[in-house]
Design a protein around this nucleic acid. Structure first.
Lengths: 121, 121
DNA sequence: GCCTGCGTTTACGATATCCTGCACATAACC
DNA sequence: GGTTATGTGCAGGATATCGTAAACGCAGGC
């Protein structure tokens, strides 16, 4: 379990079996080879699948995509884009936010969501 | 200038010349080949230098590293780490923040900085 | 002339990333 | 015992990323 890839693989396999998919069938749905899926699920893959692929897996299995992307140690694509689109403010926001307690962070997110409701740019 | 890499290259060259470095001399300081530096400055490089390398360039030329990393279209390493370390809240924060006006965003950052003053992790 | 320094071009390479094809072993089913 | 389904091991490979070496043409000084 010390290897996050192994952990991700285990979670993936568990969930896939719960949903009743065979490895080959699920590989087909995700559009990867059974070979690679096997490697990933057993934690033997050198690299986790790309973020978008992990997202697809999560969606197909009814799991939370962001959570799974995190488990796989990858960065969501849209997050990357948000930062590259505003590469001065967003890093500043993150650097400030990392010093907050979870509660403070939660409130900050809520505040941002509230304010962004009406008029975005 | 529609190509951001070209823009970055132009800024870099301008600044380097202002500082009186020859291409070869500066390449040596940054620890890259004159070849690659030339390609980068003229916007002909297939890829921008890695984030750390850009940071080094900016530092050597007295420019703002984050700003230059942004110009080069790269992601600061510490930002990457912050997200991977809290891969559920930080993406949520960014997604909420992207809908804010610049003024709202500024206030949000200020609030986060204020609150984070006392208790870090 | 030659040598030094300047930037540039062409070709190429190392490593990382993400993933495949194919053959295999095992069991189940008819 | 042939067929079908399961997951797996081995041996790669395509593309992206981040650069390099060697050579070129051009100027200036001596």
């Amino acid at each position: 379990m010390s290897d996050p890839l192994q952990h991700f693989g285990a979670v993936l396999r568990k969930r896939r079996l719960e949903k009743g998919y065979s490895l080959r069938k699920f590989a087909e749905l995700v559009e990867i080879s059974p070979t690679y899926l096997s490697l990933v699920e057993t934690g033997k893959a050198e690299y986790a699948p790309a973020a978008e692929r992990v997202r697809k897996m999560a969606e197909l299995l009814g799991a939370d995509p962001d959570h799974w992307i995190a488990l796989a140690g990858r960065m969501p694509e849209d997050v990357k884009k948000i930062i590259l689109k505003d590469p001065e403010s967003m890093p500043a926001l993150l650097r400030a936010a990392k010093n907050l307690t979870p509660e403070q962070l939660k409130r900050l997110i809520a505040k941002a969501e509230r304010e962004g409701k009406g008029g975005g740019d």
